[in-house]
């Protein structure tokens, strides 16, 4: 009944939803590029902020807290507009003040969008990463120091690999949010998937159909990303069980050397220069 009405009245064009997909998918790479580049900035800056807050570095710590507060306290769309109008203004100021020669009109909106979304992402990632870093047992950090490792070495070799398993679900979540957040990039004059959808809709006023097509694509992308995250999570898991070293069977002599030697030593446990009072 419903289908009949829809097909007879031409109220909803099913076919168009499918036919538009290729046209929209052409812009999927831009959407993904935006998301990936922003995520890279978000991870790098987020890690920096997290370490600053973890290590309680004076002054920087207050700046980091202030930065996170501002970014989280303002809407993403406002930040995008500020980047889009602000960065060219900044360049113009530098041209006037320092005599540099930036071509303001050529500065790509894409870069503005990546900046804005990357820094936006960093504020949220900072908290996720900080929580993950502080979940790593202090004892291991002490052990790393006791071995003589510097903090950056310990961070890279011991703390981060362990924190990553804790941070992954949270970071994955925010990456999925970011993919969909790229649909705001039109504010910086970037034509990504959603913007292209609007253009298509403008041609034939079939806005409803085009948004349904977009919804399908975003959903599909999200499902794929979820799969990838699951896969990474599985890869990071430590094996449940490991067989005892096969080398024991290969070199039975070597493996037993210790026990034999030790036994002899314990049997004749006399150290003339060091009289144990037994």
């Amino acid at each position: 009944m419903m289908m009949q009405i829809l097909s007879e009245t031409n109220l909803f064009d099913f076919g168009l939803v499918g036919r538009q997909l290729p046209e929209l998918l052409k812009y999927l790479p831009i959407t993904l590029e935006l998301a990936l580049l922003s995520m890279l900035i978000g991870l790098a800056v987020g890690l920096l902020l997290a370490v600053i807050r973890m290590k309680r570095i004076p002054v920087l710590r207050q700046i980091a807290a202030f930065y996170i507060s501002i970014i989280r306290g303002t809407p993403a769309i406002v930040q995008l507009y500020i980047a889009y109008f602000g960065i060219p203004m900044l360049l113009k100021y530098m041209n006037l003040h320092f005599g540099t020669d930036f071509d303001i009109s050529a500065f790509p909106g894409f870069a503005c969008a990546v900046f804005a979304m990357g820094f936006n992402e960093s504020a949220y990632n900072a908290e996720t990463i900080r929580a993950a870093l502080s979940s790593v047992d202090r004892g291991q950090i002490e052990a790393a120091s006791a071995v003589g490792m510097t903090y950056p070495q310990a961070l890279r070799r011991i703390i981060l690999p362990e924190a990553m398993t804790v941070a992954l679900p949270g970071l994955g979540n925010s990456f999925i949010g970011l993919i969909k957040g790229t649909s705001l990039a039109f504010t910086c004059a970037v034509v990504e998937m959603t913007a292209q959808g609007k253009i298509l809709g403008g041609r034939n006023y079939r806005y409803f159909e085009v948004y349904v097509s977009l919804a399908i694509i975003y959903w599909a992308v999200t499902i794929i990303v979820e799969r990838i995250l699951k896969f990474i999570e599985k890869r990071l898991e430590l094996p449940e069980q490991i067989d005892k070293k096969a080398a024991a069977a290969e070199e039975p002599e070597k493996a037993r050397t210790f026990t034999k030697e030790a036994k002899v030593r314990y049997d004749t446990n006399k150290k003339p220069e060091k009289a144990f009072s037994q």
């Binding site: 430590l238 094996p239 069980q241 490991i242 070293k245 024991a248 070597k254 493996a255 210790f258 026990t259």
Partner: peptide
């Protein structure tokens, strides 16, 4: 080998 743990080289602490 000195501490008699050579056979467990490939094991993680949780094992």
């Amino acid at each position: 080998k000195r501490v008699g743990m050579y056979d467990w080289s490939e094991h993680y602490p949780k094992h």
